[in-house]
């Protein structure tokens, strides 16, 4: 059984169809990279997967539990709030813009949701958060406020915040797009380490070299469709589809 499945999802914004019957499933321990040009629908797919956006039609399943399924007319219907809350605890999301809480220090950014949403023991959560802060190379920063940190440090806090919820799968929405190349390296290093620890991850990214190195599978999207999907050495190094070749060629040109 797949850890995460999204089946036949379609989504339109007004007249614009951004997702066309997309199906993706991710197994435990797998790292999937989603690449593609701007407006290809990759971020919308991630937002549908994390329920920030509602699907027009399609199924969304975590651990075999249905967060949404089609009704008789083929419209996606979501589960009850109580069920969705449980399902939400299975995944975490790291945003392009970090979205840390500016009025909370680093430690509270990590601990608040585990304590007040998951109702876990405070001492335990703080201990775990401190370990995550250390793991992210942010020792001594636990009482800093987000704006006192660099972009790379903020994104590492955001990753730690997501991990502190003990998710089974972690989604990344262009986690390095708001960072300069030097800071990008910091974040990629952290994600690479998580991959080595067999964290299940879905990463929307423009970092082709990184996708090739880290991902078990690469999905190339364009115009709301999955154009090509497979092992990174196939999709990125030897794409078969014309559209993928053109997209990757532009990347090669621009370095």
């Amino acid at each position: 059984m797949s850890l995460f499945e999204i089946k036949n999802v379609s989504k339109s914004f007004g007249d614009l169809k951004v997702l066309n019957d997309i199906t993706v499933s991710v197994d435990k321990g797998e790292v999937v990279a989603i690449i593609g040009p701007s407006g290809s629908g990759k971020s919308t797919l991630l937002r549908c997967a994390t329920m920030l956006e509602t699907m027009d039609s399609g199924e969304l399943i975590y651990h075999g539990e249905k967060a949404a399924a089609n009704d008789a007319e083929g419209k996606a219907v979501y589960a009850s709030n109580a069920e969705l809350r449980k399902i939400k605890s299975y995944f975490g999301l790291v945003f392009q813009q970090f979205n840390l809480f500016p009025h909370y220090d680093v430690l509270k950014n990590l601990c608040d949701a585990p304590i007040h949403v998951q109702k876990r023991n405070k001492t335990e959560v703080v201990k775990e958060a401190m370990a995550l802060i250390a793991k992210m190379g942010l020792e001594g920063k636990e009482h800093y406020y987000p704006q006192q940190l660099s972009g790379g440090q903020q994104q590492r806090v955001a990753i730690a915040r997501a991990l502190c919820m003990n998710p089974d799968i972690l989604f990344f929405d262009e986690p390095t797009s708001a960072l300069d190349p030097e800071l990008t390296g910091e974040i990629l290093k952290v994600i690479r380490q998580l991959a080595q620890e067999h964290m299940t991850m879905v990463i929307v990214t423009h970092e082709m070299a990184f996708a090739r190195d880290v991902a078990d599978r690469v999905i190339f999207m364009d115009g709301g469709y999955i154009v090509e999907e497979g092992r990174p050495e196939d999709v990125i190094t030897n794409p078969t589809e014309e559209r993928t070749k053109r997209f990757l060629a532009r990347f090669a040109e621009n370095g």
């Binding site: 329920m51 920030l52 939400k88 945003f95 949403v117 919820m165």
Partner: peptide, 8 residues
């Protein structure tokens, strides 16, 4: 959005 994903 961050709060929603965290389950608040």
């Amino acid at each position: 959005e961050a709060a929603t994903v965290l389950g608040y």
